[in-house]
Write a protein that binds this DNA or RNA. Structure first.
Lengths: 123, 123
DNA sequence: TCAACAGTTCCGAATTTCTGAACTATGGAA
DNA sequence: TTCCATAGTTCAGAAATTCGGAACTGTTGA
């Protein structure tokens, strides 16, 4: 398994962000992560209610989210911990993520790491 | 030639907007329209500097922009007049278009019909 | 009536997406 | 250790999408 790629903040491209979030399944996953309340593992995010995303598709969704710079993934034992990069992203693209989530009706008030706490970054 | 389809404001879907604007060529076209200064015809927008978009691709770009709800196209004689639906869109998805254009570095201060003038709508 | 022009449609090639099946990595139990 | 279960990744082929040249359509002006 090749090491997971995460773009540096300055390498994040708006087209990648928009592309990643132009898929409602990925938005649903990202919104769940952004609004916390879930463990952040892949499997915990597979159930969208109306359908269960196949494993391989899910894995690909996470790859797209990760490589576009929207999330950070980190192996923890047998599973994967995912977290959004909202705080960083808001620095680079002010207001973007928020207005996208609002547009999707996925902004219930509290974004995990956005604007509030300045994220105790580990790198 | 079938009649051009324009979604009603309430039928505009965020995923369509993001998808349409996840392509840098379409963003370039849309930004030129949004910041005025050009006629709004297709051919006037074909030249991106580094490459000239083929006619059929250009036509498709306009179709994507139109059917996502980002622009309105109207035949005027032999050519097509295009205009953004920024004012309407900002009503439905507050801040979205603006923050996207800012993210792309395509927001030079003056958006044609956004927030300022409430657009003398023709319909 | 005809030619020119702006843009659309068609269609085949190339690329991308999707997902089941096989595989890999980790941790726990025997 | 070895073995099994679990979480997720990679592979591969089918399906869907995108791209763009060539042919077509609709409009204007000569």
């Amino acid at each position: 398994m090749r090491p997971l790629f995460h773009p540096a903040l300055e390498d994040i491209r708006p087209e990648a962000i928009l592309y990643a979030l132009s898929d409602p399944e990925r938005v649903a996953i990202f919104a769940k992560l952004a609004t916390a309340g879930c463990g952040g593992t892949c499997s915990a995010l597979a159930d969208l209610g109306d359908r269960v995303i196949p494993k391989s598709s899910l894995s690909n969704h996470f790859k797209v989210l990760r490589e576009s710079g929207l999330i950070r993934s980190e192996r923890q034992g047998v599973e994967m911990r995912n977290q959004t990069r909202c705080a960083e992203l808001d620095q680079r693209f002010p207001g973007l993520i928020r207005s996208i989530l609002v547009a999707y009706g996925q902004f219930p008030g509290q974004l995990e790491t956005m604007s509030g706490e300045q994220s105790r970054d580990r790198q």
